[in-house]
């Protein structure tokens, strides 16, 4: 049994191989969320469900088979993991996180200052995109993914990028988003566009860009590395884009119905506890 998924060069097998690290992290986070009141009776059901789904997706993205396929065999599986973790699990967990987290973040001037800085769009988006670019660069991916620690570092970078991307528009309760209404929509459009160079490069590169996937034992004999890379780019653009554009559409509909910026607390440009404007 191994701590984390990595490219160990072995042939693919459908025999179940759980990764201890993924289960330990999921268990610790679940325990902390439970103790922090994430599943208390007064927490709305939709938040509890979001939190549970977010946790399950985080575990699904970091445990066998998806993580093993992604780390060692198919870049398309790796891209599914990225979309699951960055685009779905992170915002769901932020949405469902217990009030204790938001209260903790808001408890001291230092924490408030840090939150204010990292939720500034011109800070959060470039850092998140830079992280995603870095963990997509062959020069980093090829050596890192061969070790459990390196692969773990790549996954942590994804999770960090996911939280950075979503914090400005989906902070933990009781905090209100720094960006709301049309500004949040513009920000999300930026999120959908900014990482596209990676997908563009994967789509149009004449040869496979990652050595680990090009030379990995085949999971499906005739599914070659180039096709795998093109599928990965499609997943990144279509699935990742779909998640963001659904968010944009929902926000637009709410805003059009008066439930956006006008319906909630007044936009202040910084995060404030929701009870300030309640």
């Amino acid at each position: 049994m191994r701590f984390w998924c990595s490219n160990d060069g072995s042939n693919w097998t459908w025999a179940w191989k759980p990764y201890i690290g993924a289960w330990v992290i999921a268990a610790v986070v679940a325990l902390w969320l439970w103790r922090a009141g994430g599943w208390r009776a007064d927490v709305p059901v939709r938040r509890k469900v979001a939190l549970a789904i977010g946790l399950v997706l985080l575990l699904g993205g970091t445990d066998w088979p998806l993580s093993a396929l992604g780390a060692g065999y198919l870049v398309s599986a790796q891209m599914v993991r990225q979309v699951l973790i960055v685009m779905i699990a992170c915002p769901l967990m932020l949405y469902g996180s217990p009030p204790a987290l938001g209260e903790w973040l808001d408890a001291t001037p230092m924490r408030r200052r840090i939150v204010r800085i990292i939720t500034t769009p011109l800070v959060s988006l470039p850092i998140a995109v830079a992280l995603l670019f870095a963990v997509s660069a062959p020069v980093l991916v090829d050596p890192l993914i061969k070790t459990q620690l390196g692969s773990f570092a790549l996954d942590i970078a994804w999770i960090s990028a996911g939280f950075l991307i979503w914090l400005p528009v989906q902070p933990p309760t009781p905090m209100v988003p720094r960006l709301r209404g049309p500004i949040a929509i513009i920000y999300l459009i930026g999120v959908s566009v900014a990482p596209l160079p990676v997908a563009f490069f994967m789509t149009w590169a004449p040869t496979p860009i990652y050595a680990v996937y090009e030379l990995a034992p085949r999971v499906f004999p005739t599914f070659d590395a180039q096709s795998d890379q093109e599928l990965a780019a499609a997943i990144f653009q279509v699935a990742g884009g779909l998640v963001i554009w659904v968010q944009i559409a929902v926000r637009f509909v709410r805003m059009a119905g008066g439930g956006g910026a006008a319906g909630g607390p007044r936009f202040r440009g910084t995060m404030v506890p929701s009870n300030v404007s309640a």
Binding site: N11, P206, T207, P208, E214, L215, A216, P217, R218, P221, D224, A225, Q226
Partner: peptide, 17 residues
């Protein structure tokens, strides 16, 4: 299961274009 299909896939991909 490993070396031959990778070799052949790499060569096929190389010669294709």
């Amino acid at each position: 299961p490993d070396v031959c299909p990778v070799h052949l896939n790499v060569l096929a991909g190389t010669l294709e274009d």
